[in-house]
């Protein structure tokens, strides 16, 4: 059995990288998303349907991560937190240069509404013992990305399983 680095052990269950979205949830990106997949759901296009069914316009649930991707450029920015920064921290700290994501689960909470300003943070849930797969030897880890609205309500939790590894020699 190989001991897990104590610093990494301390990350498990810790709330890391809290970030607020750089802009409010807005219809322009909702239209862009629906247009990109030809999603004709009237919840996103028709005000009467939106009012009747969802008490106003909401965003498609699967857009949840889009609200947190930083602008490609912004003034005065020195460094930016990557989506899934914990994943990259693990690769670096555990000296595992390669990584793949094996599973992605999203559980949706209250609807994301136009005008919301969302927040997110990441929680490392687990790191496995060393494992060897056909890719190489490394560790599996589970990371939750928690999304909340400005009222502190959960709008979704995205869970990733990653495998960081070194290729077989």
């Amino acid at each position: 059995m190989s001991e897990l680095d104590p610093e990494v052990q301390a990350w498990i269950g810790e709330k890391r990288y809290p970030v607020e979205s750089e802009f409010d949830v807005e219809r322009g990106y909702i239209f862009s998303s629906c247009s990109s997949v030809e999603n004709a759901n009237p919840l996103y296009w028709d005000e009467k349907t939106a009012n009747d069914v969802t008490d106003g316009f909401i965003a498609p649930p699967t857009m949840i991560s889009a609200w947190f991707r930083p602008h490609q450029w912004a003034p005065h920015r020195e460094a930016q937190i990557l989506p899934l920064q914990v994943h990259f921290d693990l690769k670096e700290k555990l000296e595992l240069p390669e990584a793949v994501m094996t599973d992605n689960t999203i559980v949706f909470g209250v609807p994301v509404r136009v005008g919301d300003r969302l927040r997110t943070h990441q929680v490392l849930r687990s790191v496995s013992e060393p494992k060897t797969t056909r890719l190489g030897t490394g560790r599996f880890w589970e990371i939750d990305v928690i999304y909340e609205n400005q009222h502190g309500e959960s709008v979704g939790i995205e869970s990733y399983t990653g495998f960081g590894y070194r290729r077989k020699a």
Binding site: V37, N39, N41, M63, N104, V107
Partner: peptide, 25 residues
């Protein structure tokens, strides 16, 4: 995420607007 948006569209094309996605993996 674009792949996920396609799956969402595929599901709600079938359900109509009252279909509310709870979980996707």
């Amino acid at each position: 995420p674009h792949n996920a948006a396609y799956f969402e569209r595929y599901i709600t094309d079938w359900t109509g607007p009252k279909g509310r996605l709870g979980r996707i993996k």
